[in-house]
Amino acid sequence: MSLNELWFLLIAVLFAGFFVLEGFDFGVGTVARFLGKDDIEKRVYINTIGPFWDANEVWLITAGGAMFAAFPHWYATMFSGFYIPLVFMLLALIIRGVAFEFRSKVENKKWRNMWDWGIFIGSSLPPILWGVVLANFMTGMPIDQDKEMVGGFIQFLHPFALLGGVMFLFVCIVHGLQFITLKTEGELQERARKVAKKLAPVTLILVLLFAIVGFIKTDIFTYHGNLWIILPILTWVTLLLGAILNNKKRDGWAFTMTSLTILLLSASIFIGMFPRVMISSINEAYSLTVYNAASGAYTLKVMSIASLVLLPFVLGYQIWSYYIFRKRVTKKDVTY
């Protein structure tokens, strides 16, 4: 494996990790305001992700930094090309981040209600926008010979992209509900389980539709051969298994399945893109690849050493943090 390929893999892993981890806290943030009947219940739901959401978001920041370092053209084309969607995503992430912190600071219904809406909007908008971005990754974008994206942002909002947005929001919600069943108990847990049960059929239909339209419209699922079609199929199957296990109250396994759903979905898209990183819809030759978008060999080498040294520590203490907060969150220990 060349370093260019290794870095593509690392960035794909960072994005997939971001989607899996931040996916459930997006989901929890989206449902908390509706699932919690009073302030304490809402706080319990929010506290299930309390110690984690910030570190989960760093997966995105690091993915961005890694793109900048390893594939400057990918970073530049993507971030300037998806300008308006990114503005909305950043606004949402800013509002969400401060809302988590600000809401508990004033004991006033209106105040908390306002920040609860902030958490809802800030948690539901980014998965929709990421769904739109992923769908556009698949269909390709109008990239010219100078590696610049041409045309306005409305072009990103084609029906398949919108389907991608709604699909990803629902997947994150189900994933988040599954996380809640794992991290709470009693009535709060049952409520999440029930909603997950209700949303399962819609989510399964959305993922199926996305996979079928993606298969017809793009070359992503079969780019490296027809066998790879197994990935979107497994995406759907794991989601189905998650729903079944949820009904059987096997919460740990159900959450594992929804995590796998997001992981497989990310894998099917990133593998199908490879070796391209941004597909040009104007001319296949204009596509950005892991070779023509990459930094020099020296930078890739330095970065490889740095990340191979640092990543084990990062993974180690993040896993340790999940272990420390492994206990379920109850109304009794809402202190923050």
Binding site: I61, G65, F68, A69, P72, Y75, A76, E148, G296, T299
Partner: peptide, 20 residues
Amino acid sequence: STYSRFVGDVFGPSLAIEGL
């Protein structure tokens, strides 16, 4: 973006390491 394309090699690693 033109800046990012030009300096990504040198400038990007600092940001990536900062994240990691």
